[in-house]
Structures are given as structure tokens and as C-alpha cells.
Design a protein around this nucleic acid. Structure first.
Lengths: 343, 343
DNA sequence: CTTTTGGATGTGAAGGTTCACAAACAAGAT
DNA sequence: ATCTTGTTTGTGAACCTTCACATCCAAAAG
């Protein structure tokens, strides 16, 4: 590559214009594909742009257009599988639409942290905001106030919320899991839930209970984990030590299921012969668990692209009606579940 | 919060200046903590800023200062544990230093993709660039040319490279793993490596081989995996079917170790009684594997903060000597390794 | 031949900030 | 009283674009 600009001063519209003897406006028109440029001039200008390696200055452009082509993602709990997948897929979807992404990870799901994150960005003229806020504690009103006019979409918030959002129907997922266990004959079904202040964990928990009640089955005890394998292990130990009687276990995610299965085995219980286990997420490792885990698959790819699409709608037409787009998870049957009492 | 600005026009320096009867320059000085403002004026201006909820316009500021307070991360393979951890920790470190982060995920480790990523940003006046480029194929010269003056740091690149970079000494890690197996008595040690076009995978592979040779042991066969559990499973199957004889297995990461252990067990081999297995990464789940996995821990937190720190050095003083900062991983002993022939 | 039309191009202003410099003023030194 | 010094404040320009409008010219229409 030839270095046309040894002084390292950025090339501007004016430089290009001067170079090929037109006005800066004409160059601007060429850059922006404005039709009012003659074929010949356009050719010459394009040539010059290439020769001089001109790169439009986004910052100057933003200053006048008041748009930045920048989307912001504020995410909580990004070291968990779900949120990190969401971020990755949102980034991909955004880039396909020509947007760059600013990533902000908050370590605590409080309004203060969110406020700080938004404030640190205000002034950057971010065009839109995606919030991955799987934890209770923030209301739509406050958020809308904070965002002060810039469109936003929430991912993984409460089902039924009136916030513009895209969610996966966790209730449905948990129902699939529980129903599956009922259908193959289980009647004593316990649960290890995620932290219940997470919307998803709570929804899965309630749906587990409701599904059992509807089937006329008394829910076994439920213990709360922290999404991690170690937390799942500890939760399962508590369950075991409580002396509860059960033949199946619904677990809030796959990592905890891993830990739980380990605890079960340590207590001499076999999976699935003595206890069936079903997870949630279908992480890529689940198929290699011992035994391969029956679980609920969520389509994070679709979640990401839907969020970006919806956000772009809101940006283009601020009067887009508020909606909650709901996606549905599916059951993946593997070897960790089996009718009770089958050796 | 009182909405002082119902028209939704952004409040500017001028508005604040007019409001408290000073010039815009004075307000600018207050905002930038310039000492040449009297105590009384500063008090008044600060008051007004708060009252009117003034937020400096970063875009306008960037236009004149030619700085954006924006760092860019270009990452490859972000759905793998290592890269995603690096991103998370880099983000955290950057934010602590007052920088926001633009995230770009490339799907192919080619110069073209990197070029596209950098071009899409040129013009955003990004202050610095961090590249997570664990795969061979990009040379310093090309990169420096592409970046055209903006400082950059690479993470997880080749050990010994003359690129400004922060890396973990993978050779050392693999040596720890292999040495550990040798010390407890193993002599027939195979390997499942990561994709060998990844620097890390290659370094671990070579170090595994070298460590064995140095100890006077002939390396067992090595098969290549793809970092995933399923890939590890497949690799282990190939190894098993090859009829090779071994008592221990060095695996390129923990996920593949999970898959490998599953394959071993399916073939009637017990871990660690028949085969010892050691992984790499120490993912949070490794402690709950069956059995808990002996592995190599990498300090991604430190990696992230070191990268940002180094990048900031480069930004402040472009004459900062190029260096490669090298971090060292540690061995975590669990139950997947045991002297051979011990029931 | 004059008028109208419309496409191609150029000019001035604006967007919100910082930088360099000038002005005003007060206090201390001569 | 005058000069110097230093502190506080204000002014103009610059950063690089886009937008709104004006101008120019050629071709078509009357």
C-alpha cells in the first residue's frame, strides 16, 4: 500500500476536492451517493478518494447529522452463558446492519450502575440501546427517563412486561422439561432453580411448580442455586441431605445440572437410573456430560437478530408500537432422563 | 428528576453560559477542570450544569481534540472460553480507566476480515486497538500498516513475536501439565491438541512434545481437536481406535477434556484409574467434571488489565518501547490424574 | 428568440467543542 | 504615580462534515 499521506494529517473532503478541482460539496455528494453528480465527475472523484485513501470522518459527520451509527449494549452477568451468547449474537446482527457496538458490562444490577453506564455514554450520541437485564429491579419508567429519548430494547426481561423487549418464554421451556418428566412417569420431581431475583430463574421456577400442580402432583422441594456448577453441586447436596424423596430433578441451567449430577453420584445415586435430570440452555458441552444431558435449547441467534431488528425499527419510526417479541425454546432429549425405576 | 429541557434539544455550553452570565469558554474551563476560574464563578457554573443537566457532547469534543475515549477490540473466536473471558476483562479494565469499548467480532481470521473491521472504524477516531488474534496468519508489518498510526496491542499472539503484545506462556502451561504426569510416573502420554493454526494450541503441542523428549520419553500420538467438547470426543475416539497404548492424556482445553473423558468411559476406560487426563484453562465447570479435572489455570483478569495498561502507555507515549508482556499459568491438581496402575 | 425547466455544481452556515490569543483588571514592586 | 506581573475572563478560529440555498448552464418548450 502506498502511503500517500506522510504527515499523518487526516485527508479531508477539501483535500480530495482540491486534488480533482471540484468543490468539497461535490465530493460529499459522491461519498453519500447523491444522484446529482455527473458520471464523469463521480468517476474522477472516486478515483481520487481511492488514490488518496480518503476515509470520511465519522465524528464530524455525527456532529451534524446527530447520528453515530453506534449501538450500545449494557449487559449484566456476562460471564454466564446466556448473556455472553446474547452479546455475541447482538454484535453480529448489529454489524450486519452496518452498526458498531459499544459494550458495557455492569457488575451489579442496580439503577445506579445502569445510570452510570448510560451517563458515560450520553454525549456519544449513541443511536440506540440494548439492555440485557435479566434481573429484577429496574422499571420501564425509570429507564425511559434515563434514556431520555434514545430508543432502547430490553432482552431477557420479564415476560409480560410493557417494555419494548425480546424474550424467550422461559415458562414454556420449564414446562417442556417438567411435562417431559411427567410423561415418562415421574411423580416426585424436585428443582434446583437459578437465583430467583433473575426473571428467567423465577419464571422457570414458577412454571415448574404450576406444571406439577396442574398435573395434580405435589411439587417436591426446590432449592436455589447460583447458575454455576459449584453452586449446583452445593444445592444438590442440600437437597440430598434434606432426605427428600424424588426420582427426577429439574435444574435451572446446564452448568448447575453438571454440579448436581456430580453430587448425586457422590451420594451413590445414578443418573438416570435412580434420578433423572433435565437442564436448561443446551450449552455445547451438555452432549458430552456423563450422561449426555436432556435439556432445553434457546435460540440466542434469533434473539440477537430480533433485538437489533426491533431496535432499528424503533429508531427509524419512533411511533413503532411497543411490543414484546417472544421466542420459544425446545426440548432436547438425551440420556439423563428415563422412566423411573428402569435399571 | 425534573425535565428542564422539554424540547429535547441538547443543552450546550452556550446555554449554560447564558444561563449564568459568563462566556462559553468559562463553562468549558469548568468542565475541563482548568484552574483559571475563580472559586465563585466555578461554583455558579457547576450549579447551572447540574440544574440544567448539561452533558458535554463527546462528538464535538472529539472533533477538535482528535481523541474519542474509545478503545476497539477486534476478537476472533469469541464463542470460545478464552477469547470471551479476555473480552470481558478487557472491557472492565478499559472502563476503569475511563474508556468505552467498541467490540468487533470477526468470523474468520483473515487479513481481509481484519481490514474490514479496521476500515469500518477508521474515521471513528478510535484511540487504540486491542486485537485478540490467537490464530496465525497476520503479520506485524501488515497490521501496523493497516492501523496507520493508531496504537495497538495484541493478546494471545505468538510467543516471541515482536508485536506489542500481552500473552500467556502456553509453553510453560503445557510443560507444567506434561511434567506433572511424568513426575507421578507416566511414560506413555498422548495428546489431544487444539487446532494447530492457533498459536496457543501449537505452543502447547510443541511444549508437550519437547517436555517428553527432554525427559527421554517418546511422545505418544497426538490428534487434533477443535476446542469443543464434541471435537474432543471425536479426537479421543480416533485415538482409541488407533489402538495406541497410553496411560495419560494431555488435552488442549477443558471442554475437549470433557469430551475425551466421555469417549474413554464409553470404551470402558476409567479416569483416572486407567487413563489420567489433564486439561487447560480451568473453566469454572472443571471442578465438577467426572472426575474433577486437573488442569492449567490462566489469569485472564490480569491479561485484560495488562493489555489495557500497556495500550494506554502506547497511547500516551508513542515511543514506549515495544514489548511482549508474558504471564504464567499455574497447575491445578484435581482427581483426573493419578500414578499409572493405581486402582 | 425568449422563457421555463432541471440537472450539475458551488457557497455560506451550522453543529458543539477546544485551542491560541487578547483584553481587562487587581495587586505588588519600583 | 507608573510599571510589572499574574489571574480571570472573553473572542475568533478551527475541527470536518452536512444542509439549505443560490448559481450556472444547457436543453426543451412556448
Amino acid at each position: 500500500m502506498t502511503r500517500t499521506n506522510p504527515t499523518h494529517r487526516r485527508i479531508t473532503l477539501h483535500d480530495v476536492a482540491q486534488y480533482c478541482g471540484v468543490s468539497y460539496q461535490t465530493v460529499s455528494r459522491v461519498v453519500n451517493n447523491n444522484p446529482h453528480v455527473s458520471k464523469e465527475t463521480r468517476r474522477r472523484v472516486l478515483r481520487a478518494i481511492k488514490d488518496m485513501n480518503y476515509q470520511p470522518n465519522h465524528v464530524a459527520r455525527s456532529l451534524v447529522t446527530r447520528r453515530s451509527n453506534l449501538l450500545e449494549v449494557i449487559t449484566f452477568g456476562s460471564n454466564h452463558y446466556g448473556p455472553s451468547q446474547m452479546v455475541a449474537h447482538v454484535e453480529r446482527a448489529a454489524r450486519l446492519q452496518g452498526y458498531n457496538l459499544i459494550l458495557t458490562n455492569i457488575s451489579e444490577m442496580s439503577l445506579d450502575e445502569i445510570r452510570a453506564a448510560i451517563n458515560s455514554l450520553s454525549g456519544r450520541l449513541v443511536d440506540g440501546l440494548i439492555m440485557i437485564t435479566p434481573v429484577a429491579g429496574v422499571e420501564f419508567e425509570e429507564l425511559a427517563d434515563l434514556c431520555d429519548g434514545i430508543p432502547f430494547v430490553m432482552i431477557d426481561t420479564q415476560l409480560g412486561s410493557t417494555t419494548p423487549s425480546v424474550v424467550i418464554n422461559q415458562r414454556h421451556g420449564s414446562q417442556l422439561a417438567t411435562q417431559h418428566l411427567i410423561e415418562i412417569g415421574h411423580r416426585a420431581i424436585c428443582e434446583i432453580s437459578g437465583p430467583l431475583n433473575w426473571y428467567g430463574a423465577n419464571a422457570r421456577h414458577e412454571s415448574w411448580r404450576d406444571t406439577l400442580m396442574t398435573a395434580g402432583i405435589t411439587p417436591g422441594p426446590s432449592v436455589e442455586g447460583d447458575w454455576t456448577a459449584v453452586g449446583g453441586y452445593a444445592a444438590a447436596r442440600r437437597l440430598i441431605e434434606s432426605g427428600a424423596n424424588y426420582t427426577a430433578l429439574v435444574v435451572g441451567n446446564d452448568q448447575m445440572a453438571l454440579g448436581a449430577m456430580r453430587a448425586l453420584r457422590e451420594s451413590g445415586l445414578r443418573v438416570p437410573e435412580d434420578v433423572s435430570v433435565v437442564g436448561f440452555d443446551d450449552i455445547p458441552e451438555a452432549v458430552c456430560f456423563e450422561p449426555p444431558l436432556t435439556t432445553i435449547r434457546q435460540d440466542f441467534d434469533l434473539l440477537g437478530s430480533q433485538s437489533v431488528e426491533y431496535l432499528l425499527d424503533l429508531m427509524k419510526r419512533p411511533d413503532t408500537p411497543l411490543q414484546q417479541r417472544v421466542l420459544y425454546p425446545t426440548l432436547i432429549e438425551r440420556q439423563s432422563t428415563r422412566p423411573p425405576g428402569q435399571p
